[in-house]
Nucleic acid binder design. Structure first.
Lengths: 195, 195
DNA sequence: CGATTCTTTGAAAACAGTCAATCTGTGTGG
DNA sequence: CCACACAGATTGACTGTTTTCAAAGAATCG
């Protein structure tokens, strides 16, 4: 379970054995069952979370009770509600395991102290922010300018590893279309697979 | 024209006369006419741009020639294509003045050297990233979960200073609805103003 | 003023959402 | 091993919304 994280960090830049040991020493390792909540709406998102195994979603509940999925995070991805984490305010999101999962957690305090000591973590944190922003921009562009078919196709292309593991109704929620519509789109694409 | 920027920076934290002088010395001041391009698709977005006066938009051209507006930036706002700026790669966006505008520009090199020397700029850059990310998240949520009426109402609430200055068809492009639909939505809200 | 840009309106067609019923696969307990 | 419950996916009929196209009406710039 920790091998994943080691491999991931080594892939990000030069890092010593000692640094790796420290990174892991400051983390908490946790397992979650399918459907178990990692963070509940109203709590403060205390940790940066690295998914070493499994699949996680972050979603929001609207007043009418419907779920809106903001993001999925599979192995080797980070998940956090930046707003709650940075300002230590209650989160509006729920973070939940879609599959049985294993994660590493760092408190903000621990994570920031690690960033001061371990060069590669600085760069990594910066990179994550830039990537987040970039991904958000692309998603906005898709949302406002693409047809439902294109949105679905883009999702499949962007997350080839994920789309088979996520129930279709969750993909629908992520894309902002009804599950019935998405079901029909997918059906149409099976008969006419051009993209 | 520089007073705006001075006031803005002072509002962000303690800053000395000397620091302010340096900030401005490293900047280029430029004026742009309505419809003039600040940055053209294919160029590298070389600068961080502060809008001291006027109104700017950043948009993208789709293959079919339609424009998709990513963001507006009025006085006291920054605009930059992070991806192009950060990686020094050609931008996919156009940045254009909607009104006659005045801006301050810093190259990445200059801006980063200033961040090293002037504490408040560090914090400011960090704050801008967090805000960008947060705004993007909120916009995605709106896009995938709200009705067109709600999207328009949210735009009006979020940018009370801007929405009267932007042509309706650009708001439509920003929201991802046709100009005709937005026209009808607005008409309906005039007769039934409840939000 | 004249040209251009922007907005509005109407009517038809395309699209997506809702509701209700059915179908499928999975896993649990008897 | 079977029956059942449950979550998920599909389908059809219907409704409502949005787009598109075409035309015309304001507003604005030079």
């Amino acid at each position: 379970m920790l091998e994943n994280f080691e491999t991931y960090v080594r892939g990000k830049g030069p890092v010593t054995e000692e640094e790796l040991r420290l990174l892991i020493a400051k983390a908490t390792v946790k397992k979650f069952r399918r459907r178990q909540l990692l963070v509940r709406e109203g709590e403060v998102c205390q940790h940066k979370i690295f998914v070493s195994k499994g699949l996680i979603r972050i979603y929001r509940l609207k007043e009418d009770g419907t779920e809106v999925i903001m993001r999925f995070a599979a192995e080797d991805n980070w998940i956090v509600d930046h707003e709650s984490y940075y300002h230590q305010t209650p989160t509006k999101y729920n973070i939940e395991a879609i599959e049985d999962s294993e994660v590493l957690l760092w408190t903000r305090e621990n994570f920031e102290s690690l960033m001061l000591v371990i060069p590669v973590m600085q760069a990594l944190a910066e990179q994550l922010r830039v990537n987040s922003l970039h991904a958000s921009q692309d998603r906005i562009l898709m949302n406002i300018s693409a047809t439902s078919e294109e949105k679905y196709q883009d999702f499949v292309n962007t997350f080839p590893d994920i789309f088979r593991r996520v129930p279709l109704h969750m993909v629908a929620s992520y894309l902002g279309v009804s599950r019935e519509t998405l079901s029909r789109i997918r059906h149409a694409q099976l008969n006419q697979p051009k993209g």
